[in-house]
Amino acid sequence: MNDLFISLSPFSFLVEPLSHEFMRRALMVSALVGGVCGLLSCYMTLKGWALMGDAVSHAVMPGVVVAYALGLPFSIGAFVFGVGSVALIGFVKQKSRIKEDTVIGLVFTGFFALGLVLVSKIKSNIDLMHILFGSPLGISYSDVHQTLLISGIVVSILVLFRRDLMLYCFDPTHARSIGINTGFLHYLLLSVLSLAAVAGLQTVGIILVVAMLITPGATAYLLTDRFDRMTYLAIFSSAISSILGVYISYWSDIETGGSIVLVQTFIFLLAFLFAPRYGILKSQGSTHL
């Protein structure tokens, strides 16, 4: 029986890699991070914070380097710099006449450049490629624990405040008028974004983590008119993309972060073309049905 099944390619495609400890770990972490970033991506796309996601994910770079150099958990350094960049963006925007998207671009490239310089200057065994492009197949136990903890915090906050955050994205004026502290929600969402970026850079790296923070939300947005359904779809498509991406990476020996994001992009393309109501081919589709 066993031999028969193993000879079937889809079965061996999925099962054979599970015999390796590093693959089990990579699949678990990638799926978890994918789901968490997928949930957050709904808020990012609805709030129009794609650029902010890009900024925060790049800005954590020097934090990761400094943390490694000091022997601290990388997530602490990354979080400090992520939140710091957001605060700096807010400060520069408020104190100058420069438009917000310019400020965002300015701050995050500055932070990112600082990170690159630090990597080249601080003598350590940091692999620049791992930070930039992620390395879920080489993730260590302590990194797994950090990622689990970060994911737990992010999910708890997003579940606890999901209605308030939705209202904040949809109609902040009403939120304020019923006594909800929108300033708190603003910084809560930015903090969660920093945390999720830290988690995401484990799997796909700093360069591509913004894809984890927007693509699943954009895909789900094309598929439904219900916020709750959008979150489920985003979590599902993101987790599936991560799992498929890791498998494809294993079998084709291609870069894992790129593989995960390509699967996400492919699923987005499917939605873009074939989504029942908002796909560009919907008229042809509906005549067939």
């Binding site: 609805l46 209605r163 308030d164 939705m166 209202l167 994205c169 949809f170 109609d171 004026t173 009403h174 019923i178 006594g179 909800i180 947005y221 439904t224 008119d225 219900r226 916020f227 359904r229 959008m230």
Partner: peptide, 20 residues
């Protein structure tokens, strides 16, 4: 001043009046 393509129904919007 709202995003009219936001994925919420009329019911959801009116329910927001009850959040507080």
């Amino acid at each position: 001043g709202i995003d009219c393509s936001f994925p919420v129904s009329v019911w959801d919007v009116v329910m927001m009046g009850r959040y507080g």
